[in-house]
Simulated assay, not measured.
Amino acid sequence: MIPAPLLFRKKIFPAMLLYAAFGLASCEAKGPPVVAAAKPKQERRQVATPPRQPVAPKTTCTLTNDTLAGQPFGAEPTVEELLSAGAKVVSRQPYANKHEAGQTDTILTLRHQGNSFEFYHSPEKDLLRQATITNFKPAYGQRLRSTLNESARQSGGPCGQLRIRDTDRANSVSATFTAGQPSLARVQPYLD
């Protein structure tokens, strides 16, 4: 080491001071490494789509379809089929035949598993006059439910009330839907 009195006399002192200053400055620079802040990534903003809400049923749907209005059950239940399946005769009312003078026919009302059927009974045949269906479990009810659901799809979606008629507006079917399924149906075929 160089003695202190010599340092002050020589030109070494200013150089040493400079050397020491740089040394100290370099020690400070060796502190913890400086981490450059990374630019935050710009996130793509996704447009939040609201959750799909169930489509509210239309109040009333009307559909014109000759096949569906004329044959809503597909194969129409007959008096014999209903009686053999356990239907009960509720009433028999005499009805004067409009086409045969002196002939009296019968309006026959049957009840089967909560459903009501009214037939025009003549010696030649039985014609369905009206049906009110609230129980769709029997085979005829399942066929009717299928017809009503298909009709609702054809009319553009769920309906609160559905009316199906033919082009002549003679045959008609009307139904009330609850929770997207038929709960009550009235079938009224044309009778002369």
Score class of each variant (00 low, 15 high):
35 V>T: 13
37 A>F: 02
25 A>G: 15
36 A>E: 09
40 P>W: 00
13 F>Y: 05
31 G>E: 02
34 V>H: 02
38 A>V: 04
37 A>Q: 13
39 K>R: 13
19 Y>P: 07
39 K>G: 03
26 S>A: 10
34 V>R: 06
14 P>C: 09
21 A>D: 04
24 L>W: 01
20 A>P: 06
15 A>V: 12
31 G>W: 00
40 P>E: 12
37 A>M: 11
22 F>D: 11
28 E>F: 02
27 C>K: 08
31 G>F: 00
18 L>Y: 01
31 G>L: 01
28 E>S: 12
23 G>R: 08
28 E>W: 05
20 A>T: 15
20 A>N: 11
29 A>M: 03
11 K>I: 10
22 F>W: 08
33 P>M: 03
16 M>P: 06
33 P>A: 07
25 A>Y: 06
27 C>D: 10
12 I>H: 03
13 F>P: 05
25 A>T: 11
13 F>T: 13
23 G>K: 04
30 K>R: 07
12 I>Q: 10
23 G>Y: 01
38 A>M: 07
39 K>P: 11
39 K>A: 13
23 G>I: 06
19 Y>D: 07
38 A>F: 02
20 A>E: 10
24 L>E: 05
33 P>S: 04
40 P>C: 03
25 A>M: 13
11 K>Q: 11
21 A>W: 01
35 V>H: 03
33 P>R: 06
37 A>W: 05
13 F>N: 11
20 A>M: 11
38 A>E: 14
15 A>P: 02
16 M>F: 01
22 F>S: 15
30 K>L: 10
38 A>P: 03
33 P>Q: 08
13 F>S: 09
20 A>C: 12
15 A>F: 00
32 P>Q: 09
30 K>I: 03
30 K>D: 07
17 L>V: 15
24 L>H: 03
15 A>R: 11
32 P>G: 06
40 P>S: 07
23 G>Q: 06
14 P>M: 07
15 A>H: 05
33 P>F: 00
36 A>N: 01
15 A>S: 07
31 G>T: 05
29 A>D: 04
34 V>S: 03
28 E>H: 06
37 A>I: 12
26 S>Q: 11
11 K>T: 13
21 A>F: 00
39 K>C: 04
36 A>M: 03
38 A>D: 10
14 P>K: 09
38 A>L: 10
25 A>L: 13
19 Y>C: 14
32 P>N: 08
11 K>V: 08
22 F>V: 15
23 G>D: 09
21 A>N: 06
28 E>C: 10
34 V>T: 10
33 P>T: 12
11 K>H: 03
22 F>Y: 09
28 E>M: 10
24 L>D: 05
36 A>Y: 01
36 A>K: 05
31 G>V: 02
35 V>K: 06
13 F>V: 11
37 A>Y: 05
30 K>G: 04
19 Y>V: 14
40 P>R: 09
30 K>E: 09
35 V>W: 00
19 Y>S: 14
28 E>K: 12
